[in-house]
């Protein structure tokens, strides 16, 4: 990251290659399809580039990255809210079916995740997909560690109920 700030092109390429997959998963889990997640990923990198001076060496990188990724997702959600509301159901079904056939292992979890409230889903994704610690998630989402714990706990409870398993 420090080399990228010094405009090292190789460092920029390495950073993109290293950081993009988990960020892409973060977007994919909350998007309608791959194309949308890739658009979000491109927007994310443009903003990272613009905000690169705000990363200070020695500070944790993940909360910085995911705080910006969250902002990208929120902006995109707001921008496409009107479109989503006017979409007819028949347009969504083939998309979902295509996604299901392409990713046999994912859909069940994706469906379960989509049933969770947005804030809980986000916390669970950051903890489990991105592998961040409670403190890192708290920093990325701008809330307290206690609030992160509570959201994660509620998300687990909700998933347990849906899966029909006991704690």
């Amino acid at each position: 990251m420090v080399a990228y700030q010094q405009s090292d092109q190789q460092a920029a390429s390495a950073l993109v290659a290293q950081v993009s997959p988990p960020i892409f998963q973060f977007f994919l889990a909350q998007s309608r399809n791959r194309a949308e997640a890739e658009d979000l990923l491109q927007d994310f990198w443009l903003r990272i580039h613009k905000a690169r001076a705000t990363f200070r060496p020695g500070e944790p990188l993940l909360p910085w990255l995911y705080a910006i990724a969250r902002r990208v997702r929120v902006d995109h959600y707001r921008k496409t809210k009107g479109v989503r509301e006017h979409e007819i159901v028949s347009e969504q079904l083939p998309e979902k079916a295509a996604q299901d056939s392409a990713r046999p292992a994912g859909p069940k979890m994706a469906d379960l995740l989509k049933s969770l409230p947005e804030s809980q889903r986000e916390v669970l994704l950051l903890l489990k997909v991105s592998g961040m610690s409670l403190e890192e998630v708290a920093r990325a989402t701008g809330v307290s560690i206690g609030s992160v714990k509570q959201k994660a706990h509620r998300a687990y409870e909700s998933l347990r109920k849906r899966l029909g398993t006991k704690p």
């Binding site: 420090v2 990228y4 700030q5 010094q6 405009s7 092109q9 920029a12 390429s13 993109v16 290659a17 993009s20 997959p21 892409f24 998963q25 994919l28 889990a29 791959r34 997640a37 890739e38 990923l41 491109q42 990198w45 443009l46 990272i48 580039h49 690169r52 001076a53 705000t54 990363f55 200070r56 060496p57 392409a102 990713r103 292992a105 994912g106 979890m109």
Partner: peptide
């Protein structure tokens, strides 16, 4: 489970784009 990675072409495009406009910045 670990999901599909992003398209390699997309990553190359992103890397090229940010490298092209890169200027050193002070943190």
């Amino acid at each position: 489970v670990e999901g599909d990675p992003p398209d390699a072409a997309t990553l190359e495009k992103i890397a090229a784009r940010i490298s092209a406009s890169a200027k050193p910045v002070r943190a």
